[in-house]
């Protein structure tokens, strides 16, 4: 028990601290590295909750794909992050004020929080106890039955996002040399090589 509590505080503190560093770091590459650290610690929190599938997905998708993509973007785009952050000190008081007001309002909302009668029973999804069925099986059992509509519709949203990205960036340019595997394979040595007998001493 004490180990779990300690692990929770370790993961939580590191996650929050690296979250602050993501925003605060001067070097954008450091920001992304701290982001990866934050992801890893959140994955640790998921494991403590018994959600091992989500933890693995977080690492594979977010660290493996998203954060690496961020790293590429940060390295390839020459964005002057120092200039972007120039107004930080100037806008800090206003930002802090808005943040404080929002926090106060949220606390008021949470303080007066009422749950509808029977809400907790409705929210609980009946699944087999953790020892008998794995996370992946439990998720799959509802994802492809109860939530099939949302699953398919979310797939369509991703399809539209893909079409959009291609439409807005793909340019048909003339004069581009493209690789054509068929042409390369169909090339014979006779078409390109011309073997001549050159008499010694006379040149080509």
């Amino acid at each position: 028990m004490i180990v779990q509590t300690l692990a929770f505080y370790l993961f939580a503190v590191v996650a929050v601290a690296s979250g602050i560093m993501v925003v605060g770091a001067r070097n954008p590459v450091h920001s992304v590295l701290f982001l990866i650290l934050a992801f890893f610690n959140s994955a640790g929190l998921f494991i403590l909750l018994g959600a091992e599938l989500l933890a693995m997905i977080l690492i594979i998708v977010y660290v493996g794909a998203v954060a690496v993509l961020f790293l590429f973007v940060v390295m390839m785009l020459d964005v002057n992050f120092v200039a972007l952050r120039e107004g930080f000190a100037r806008y800090l008081p206003v930002g802090a004020l808005v943040g404080a007001v929002l926090l106060l309002e949220l606390l008021l909302v949470l303080g007066a929080w009422v749950v509808a009668p029977g809400a907790l029973e409705r929210a609980g999804v009946p699944i087999a106890p953790a020892g008998e069925v794995t996370n992946a099986a439990a998720l799959g059992a509802v994802l492809y039955t109860k939530y099939i509509y949302l699953f398919q519709a979310a797939g369509l949203v991703l399809l539209v996002a893909m079409i959009g990205a291609i439409v807005l960036t793909l340019r048909e340019r003339t004069g581009v040399r493209r690789q054509s595997a068929a042409r390369q394979l169909a090339r014979r040595s006779e078409d390109t090589l011309d073997i001549r007998d050159v008499t010694t001493g006379s040149g080509v």
């Binding site: 008021l108 909302v109 949470l110 007066a112 929080w113 009422v114 749950v115 509808a116 009668p117 029977g118 809400a119 907790l120 029973e121 409705r122 929210a123």
Partner: peptide, 28 residues
């Protein structure tokens, strides 16, 4: 998310069932 936190369901019928004019909290 706040509505779900109150009603415990995302279905419209469920939200309507768990909601009366008196029971509505500030959060909802």
């Amino acid at each position: 998310s706040l509505i779900y936190g109150f009603a415990g369901t995302t279905q419209f019928a469920g939200i309507a069932a768990s909601l009366t004019a008196e029971s509505a909290s500030i959060g909802l």
